[in-house]
Amino acid sequence: MANFEPTIVAFCCHYCAYGAADLAGSMRLEYPPNIRVIRLPCTGKITPVFLLRAFEKGADGVYVAGCLEGDCHFIHGNLVAKPRVNYTKKLIQEVGLEPERLEMFNMSAAMGPRFAEVANEFTERIRQLGPSPLNKKMRRVDTEAA
């Protein structure tokens, strides 16, 4: 699995995690190109539908990054997202995916290095887990075709 490059979707809130991603860029910090950032107004916008669709469309891992707890720009959006992410872990487990493929992180807009760290850690975690079972077959077909 050494050459496996996962596809990871990161749902980032506008006021903190997206700001942190921006800062990571300004600071010229390196993080894996596997991360596809999707900006949300607030992680409170997250529903299980978003997370499941990401997996269905081929993500090997998905994470939600919001403000630090207690510091949400919309007061408690990140606290709304947290149990939804935990609930969705159970939903993906039911269909045969490892719950570790989904996670929630919290960071402030000033935490550019933390954004890069999370991106690195999570990419490594998914690399260890290997491709999503849903993608394995697709990838095999691709390889055979090649």
Partner: peptide, 19 residues
């Protein structure tokens, strides 16, 4: 509406997974 989307998504994934 939301639960229909969630369950449908789960069913599609489970069945894809089972080939």
């Amino acid at each position: 509406h939301d639960e229909v989307r969630v369950l449908s998504s789960q069913l599609r994934m489970a069945r894809d997974n089972a080939g």
